[in-house]
Design a binder for these strands. Structure first.
Lengths: 209, 209
DNA sequence: GACGTTAGTAATCGACTGATAACCTGTCAA
DNA sequence: TTGACAGGTTATCAGTCGATTACTAACGTC
């Protein structure tokens, strides 16, 4: 009994290759940073989410800041990768739009991206600006290059993207039926979601307005 | 000498009425929170910016969280106030747009607003969503109510607003000439700024791309 | 089967931060 | 004058967090 309970030193998780662990921790970091941002997240939270100890996280990445930078870069590459994968040609505008919308499936991605814009660290904000610029550029080069309205179309695309990011970051799609004005805005994007949401909410809605 | 240096108990700032002090601290809070967000800002930073001691800030507002909430509400009211001040009628769309652009003069306002969307506190994100909804609503009711494209126009307005917020938050206008794609995007908003910026930058530009 | 290397933890530290308590000091009324 | 209240401060604490150190255990390999 004593041998069974006390002597057992907690069934340690199996070892993993360093690279695997790095990827795992990075994935956990994206998840946790998406929620709390840089300052609002502890290395311990990341460690727990990844199932390792806090000091190990710090040692693997050098510092919290570097961990965040790597997580951010990781995010950036996935976003830009998705946009780069769209081939040019007729209908490219619509297909690029769909590519961005599909990014919403992983809420964390665009939320981390968002934290980059409001970050304090100049290195992070520089990455964030670069990402935004690349999104613009990638879209732009898929529009007829000599279309005089191309810049305008691309700017609108980026602007809509930022609105989506904001809606996602503020968890807007999960708070339908609480604010009339906000619902109206949401309805522009997903009328069916709002219709279903307001019907379902109705009772517990505090209707801020 | 001893009398001059040591005995003098630091020339205390003159007393102020409680309400005045509150306003002053609130203004300082907006300024400092704009930079660091909620988690990335200490009550001591706010206190220093306001020229008072840290415990006094906490005691006046109850807690850091309540201070942030008040600062956020303050910000929100100024933004919505500016939009409400636009009277309806012909050209209302353009005038509302100008009103929003004029808000950019105080960088902190829109940056604090932005932090609300990425905040962890559900009370804050709810306020942020409400603000967004009101911006949409206020714009919408200034467009011909029976204009079938009204929703679309209003959505674009809000989206452009979010893009502006992002550019402002990431300090984009101060980093012209560092990233080609980003410059191209910026050129859609303020061609003259970018032209001047790239010319002036040129030398110290690392040109991320 | 000893040995170096790699994956990982426990213990702990020093700095920071939000909050509390206790105290000080102008100002104004009676 | 005196006293009471409003506007402040200094001192200090308890918790948290990133980072360091020192240690342990699994793996390959000769």
């Amino acid at each position: 009994m004593d041998l069974d309970q006390a002597a057992r030193p907690a069934p340690r998780a199996p070892r993993m290759s360093g690279d695997q662990r790095r990827e795992q921790i990075l994935a956990a970091a994206v998840e946790v940073f998406a929620e709390g941002g840089y300052a609002g997240t502890t290395t311990d939270q990341v460690a727990r989410a990844a199932g390792v100890s806090q000091p190990y996280v710090v040692r693997l990445f050098g510092s919290k800041q570097r961990l965040f930078l790597e997580a951010y870069r990781h995010t950036m590459e996935r976003v830009l990768g998705a946009m780069s994968a769209v081939e040019a040609g007729p209908g490219a505008v619509e297909r690029t739009g769909r590519a961005y919308v599909e990014l919403m499936a992983d809420r964390d991605l665009l939320r981390v991206l968002m934290h980059g814009f409001t970050a304090e660290d100049p290195e992070v904000t520089a990455l964030a600006r670069h990402t935004l610029g690349e999104v613009f550029r990638l879209f732009r080069q898929r529009v007829e290059p000599d279309d005089p309205d191309g810049d305008e179309t691309a700017r609108r695309f980026v602007a809509d993207g930022m609105l989506i990011n904001v809606l996602l970051s503020s968890d807007g799609f999960a708070h339908v039926g609480e604010d009339a004005g906000f619902d109206a805005l949401l309805r522009c994007f997903a009328p069916e979601v709002v219709a279903a949401g307001t019907a379902a909410a109705g009772d517990h809605a505090g209707a801020t307005a």
